[in-house]
């Protein structure tokens, strides 16, 4: 499923003293099966942007096409769109409300009009995907641990079987292990279910590790859009808007500036390790060659 945004503008509290333009002429295309990282400062408009993707917020002007159809047409099936584009909000565990985990996950599918059996089947599948054990199904969602709650809430959206999954800072407030679990889960979902994933994040390191494409938002407009390597090449511009490139990228740039021949577009620890090993090996062989002569 593809989503296309054309000249999208959003102004909130229009006509009052608190008027603010949250989105400014945003043009984007999200292609089928992509894994996209959406990055930006708090208040850069990224949260507003993702709420447009399933029609929760209506643009002040511009058009949003889902599979070629403008969702702002009066005949458009908005409820159908909400099932196609699953949106996981920040701290999603705060929306859990049912008496047990299974029922909570059933909430979405039931709203889609599925029967109890179908909903339950979907819920069980979703819970299995996020790695929540069967003996937790009958537990109150409030008795789960922090990381489990978060995964149960994500299952609540997955059970609607969306074609696009949008997650707003899914790792906020988790400890390192919890962060890894969630990121691993998302990356697995993308691989196995072939769904489009949009990951909103603050962490350059996380994004560099997992996504194929990065969109950088600043002051309501798209500032950069490309592969991680392309985007992180603009380190000066990123710094100007209070963002940074991954730490390893800084290291390699620093080495390169001292005249050491290393690649400057390294974005992950693994790549950096390869690069430094290669460099040291070459030095060694050169050194040996020099000694041999």
């Amino acid at each position: 499923m593809s989503i296309k945004l054309e000249h999208l503008n959003y102004i909130y509290s229009q006509g009052t003293a608190y008027e603010k333009q949250a989105l400014r002429d945003v043009c984007l295309e999200l292609r089928d099966g992509e894994f996209v990282g959406l990055i930006g400062h708090t208040g850069s408009g990224k949260s507003t942007l993702i709420q447009h993707l399933n029609g929760l917020v209506r643009a002040t002007s511009g058009a949003l096409y889902v599979d070629g159809k403008n969702i702002y047409d009066s005949s458009y099936n908005m409820k159908g769109l909400r099932a196609k584009v699953g949106l996981v909000f920040q701290y999603p565990e705060y929306q859990l409300f049912e008496v047990n985990v299974l029922k909570d996950v059933c909430f979405g599918p039931k709203n889609q009009g599925l029967t109890d059996e179908e909903a339950e089947e979907r819920a069980k599948k979703a819970l299995a995907q996020v790695g929540i054990d069967e003996n937790c199904y009958e537990q109150s969602p409030f008795d789960l641990s922090g990381g489990q709650k978060r995964r149960a809430a994500i299952a609540g959206v997955l059970a609607m079987e969306p074609e696009v999954l949008v997650l707003d800072e899914p790792t906020a407030g988790l400890d390192p292990r919890g962060r890894l679990e969630i990121l691993g889960l998302i990356s697995r979902l993308h691989r196995e279910r072939r769904i489009t994933v949009v990951l909103v994040s603050h962490s350059m390191e996380d994004v560099a590790e997992y996504v194929e494409r990065i969109i950088v938002m600043n002051k309501g407009s798209v500032m950069l859009d490309g592969t991680p390597k392309e985007v992180f090449a603009h380190d000066k511009e990123l710094e100007q808007v209070g963002l940074a490139v991954p730490q390893v990228t800084y290291l390699m740039r620093g080495l390169s500036e001292l005249g050491i021949p290393v690649r400057r577009d390294v974005t992950t620890v693994e790549e950096a390790r390869e690069e430094i090993r290669r460099l040291l090996k070459r030095r060694e062989t050169c050194g040996q060659a020099a000694e041999g002569q």
Partner: peptide
């Protein structure tokens, strides 16, 4: 407002 949006995203009406 936030919870309302989140539940609407899960198809609540």
């Amino acid at each position: 407002d936030k919870i309302m949006k989140a539940q609407t995203a899960r198809g609540a009406d």
